[in-house]
Simulated assay, not measured.
Amino acid sequence: MTAAPTLAKQYIEQRDQGYWIAGTRISLESVVYGFLNGESPESIAQNFPLLSLEQVYGTIAFYLANQELIDAYLRKAEEEFEKLQRSLREKNIPLYQKLKTAQIQKQSQA
């Protein structure tokens, strides 16, 4: 008697307070942001050669099935990133001003 095939496959795992593509170090948001920016699954797979097209589609399907939860997770991560940026700016104002000046100069040369 042969074993029945597994019908459900897990594409996403939760670890370290984040979501990751199962068995990889690639975050869920890496694929989701590409998808939300209009990239095709094939293009996303090309951008992440360690992922199969199946994993990309699985990640997108997970996002669509859990969109409210993942959108809230992404918003929270963006807020934390902005808070960290603000904190770093406030702690080292001269460095931040130098970086801002360099950025403006680079844009004016383009």
Rank of each mutant, 00 (worst) to 15 (best):
T2A: 10
A4F: 04
A4L: 07
A4C: 14
A4K: 05
P5C: 03
P5V: 04
P5M: 05
P5Y: 06
T6W: 03
L7D: 02
L7R: 00
K9N: 12
Q10E: 14
Q10I: 08
Y11W: 04
Y11G: 01
I12W: 12
I12H: 02
E13H: 13
Q14L: 08
R15L: 08
D16Q: 13
Q17P: 01
Q17M: 07
G18S: 13
G18M: 12
Y19Q: 12
W20K: 07
W20Y: 10
A22V: 05
T24D: 06
T24M: 04
T24I: 00
R25T: 15
R25V: 08
I26W: 08
I26F: 06
S27F: 14
S27T: 09
E29S: 06
E29H: 07
E29Y: 04
E29R: 01
V31G: 00
V32M: 00
V32W: 00
G34H: 03
F35C: 06
L36Y: 02
N37P: 09
G38Y: 05
G38H: 06
E39W: 05
E39K: 00
P41M: 09
S43H: 06
S43D: 04
S43K: 10
S43C: 12
I44P: 13
I44L: 14
I44C: 08
A45S: 10
Q46T: 12
N47Y: 14
N47W: 15
N47I: 04
F48D: 13
F48E: 08
F48M: 06
F48Q: 05
L50A: 15
L50S: 15
L51W: 10
S52I: 06
S52V: 05
L53D: 12
Q55D: 03
Q55C: 06
V56T: 03
Y57I: 10
Y57W: 11
Y57K: 08
T59I: 01
I60D: 13
I60E: 13
A61G: 04
A61K: 12
F62L: 01
F62M: 13
F62G: 00
F62A: 03
F62I: 00
A65T: 02
A65C: 11
N66H: 07
N66R: 01
Q67R: 13
E68P: 02
E68Q: 03
E68A: 10
L69W: 07
I70N: 00
I70C: 14
D71R: 03
A72D: 08
A72F: 00
K76L: 02
K76W: 01
A77L: 14
A77W: 03
E78Q: 10
E79V: 03
E79P: 04
E80Y: 09
E80G: 01
E80M: 05
E82S: 09
K83Q: 15
L84C: 13
S87M: 10
S87Y: 09
S87P: 05
R89W: 04
R89T: 15
R89S: 02
E90G: 12
E90H: 09
E90D: 13
K91W: 07
N92Q: 11
N92E: 13
I93L: 12
L95C: 07
L95K: 10
Y96N: 00
Y96P: 01
Q97Y: 10
K98G: 03
T101Q: 14
Q103R: 09
Q103W: 13
Q103V: 08
I104W: 08
Q105A: 04
Q105W: 09
Q107T: 04
Q107Y: 11
S108T: 03
A110T: 07
A110W: 14
